[in-house]
Each structure stands twice: as C-alpha cells, then as structure tokens.
C-alpha cells in the first residue's frame, strides 16, 4: 500500500482524484491533501510519502518550486496538469509521469501500474534534477532521461547523432561511439525531439540534422559526422531538402 500526497489548489481537482482513488484502494492506502508548496514541504518532511500527485500551477507558485526546496526526493512524483505543452515536454524529457486533467481513470491505472513496476525510488531525485535542469529556459543543453535494464541514463540531446528503430526498441547512437537501446518506439523519440532539429528521414531512422554532413540526392543517402550513411526514403527527400534549405536561410 502506498502513502500518497495530493498537492492542488483547486478543490474539484482534488475531489476528482479522491473519487478515482476509490477505484485504487488496493494500491493507495492513506492519502494526504494540501493546497500549497509550503504545506506540501512540511508534510513531505514529516511523513513518509510514497507518491506525490503534484499540480503544476499552484496559485502564484509552481509545483516545481516545491521540488527545488526539498533536500531529498525519496518518493515517486506524478504531475497533474491541464494543458501545458511546455511542462509536458519537460516531464517527458525527464521521464517523470504526469496525468492530464480531468484525469481519466484508465490513465491513472496505467500510471499506478508503472509505479508498481519500478524497483527503486532512487531515480526520482535524478529525474527531478533533470527536470529542473531542463526547465531553465535559457538552457540549450537539455537532457533526456532514459531507463533500460542497465538503469537510468541521462543523455544530452546534443549528444544524440541518430536513432534507429528496431521493432518496439530504439537504438540511440551518441557521440564517442556510445550506443543505448531502450524499449520505446522511434515514433516516441520523433515526437519528443522534433523541435530540436531531429528529422525522421526514414521509417527506421531519425537523425539529428546538426550532424548531417552531406546529402547525396541521387543516391538518397545522408552522411553523418560519425561516418554512418543512412538511406532517405523517397517521400522524405523533398521535405528534407526543404528543411535543410530553411536551416541554411536561417
């Protein structure tokens, strides 16, 4: 049984979660409720909380402020938010879970299932660190957190040269000949990285355009800085040319 804390400034959102918790009595035992960062901080410091449901927008504060003020993070975090693509991207980058409000029961079930799968809570602190790192708007050195059987990897976006699909797995080719394989689809990475000059040139290939060395239009092959030569699918040739042209003009 997990001890939970709900941090939200809006009562109807709290009510919605309370209602949903009825369906999850087997997972969530007791839960506490608070409305602000300071209340939450004192609860977290005085009680043993396993999972924190943290609203992103709290009156005049941000949910992230709570995390900044804590010395240790030894609990799981599930953010709750209405629609905020900026925050959502940050959660995804940091591999932190989130629920969109109004919260769907199915989504909550999924989130609880993931929670149970986790072997250790140690990663939370690292993930939060990445989140806070990425939330710094002046930061052009964003990182993504990826977990696999080897553990949690914190990877700089800049480091990624290309991603290659392998069924439901994706191989990430990084600088210095590093390679990581994770159990996420290439489509997941495409969506995650599309605003960072990554372009899917093929059903199985997503490349970082910053590492594009040469585009042989005749052969439809791109040559990347690491020496790899990747095929460009017929349908992506023109869009790639357009995007390269835009980059040049930029």
């Amino acid at each position: 049984m997990l001890q939970a804390l709900i941090v939200d400034d809006e009562q109807h959102c709290i009510d919605r979660l309370k209602l949903l918790f009825e369906n999850h009595k087997h997972n969530i035992g007791n839960y506490k409720i608070c409305h602000s960062v300071s209340q939450a901080k004192s609860i977290l410091e005085n009680y043993n909380i396993d999972v924190l449901f943290l609203d992103v927008q709290l009156q005049n504060e941000m949910g992230f402020d709570l995390l900044k003020q804590l010395n240790t993070i030894n609990f799981e975090i599930i953010f709750t938010t209405a629609y905020d693509s900026y925050a959502v991207e940050a959660f995804k980058f940091s591999a932190l879970d989130y629920l969109l409000k109004p919260i769907d029961n199915d989504d909550l079930t999924l989130a609880m299932d993931k929670l149970k799968e986790r072997k250790t809570l140690l990663n939370s602190a690292k993930k939060v660190a990445s989140l806070l790192h990425n939330l710094n708007k002046n930061n052009d050195n964003k990182v993504i957190n990826l977990s696999n059987s080897e553990g949690l990897h914190i990877i700089k976006v800049k480091e990624i040269i290309r991603c290659q699909a392998d069924g439901n797995y994706t191989h990430l080719y990084l600088q210095n000949d590093k390679r990581i394989t994770v159990s996420k689809t290439l489509k997941y990475f495409e969506n995650l990285l599309k605003s960072y000059l990554f372009f899917r040139i093929h059903q199985s290939h997503l490349i970082n355009l910053l590492y594009l060395n040469q585009f042989n239009q005749k052969k439809r092959v791109v040559k990347l800085n690491d020496g790899s030569e990747i095929e460009v699918s017929i349908r992506k040739k023109e869009p790639l040319l357009r995007i390269l042209n835009d980059m040049k003009n930029f």
């Binding site: 919605r16 209602l19 969109l100 109004p102 919260i103 769907d104 029961n105």
Partner: peptide
C-alpha cells in the same frame, strides 16, 4: 454524477 463525470473525462481526452 459518477457516470457523467467519467463521460466528461473521456470527452476531454477526445477533444484534446
């Protein structure tokens, strides 16, 4: 109310 609530959540997912 409970069913209406669930319905609305599904609806918001769809709209999203």
């Amino acid at each position: 109310i409970k069913e209406a609530n669930n319905y609305l959540v599904k609806f918001s997912k769809l709209i999203r």
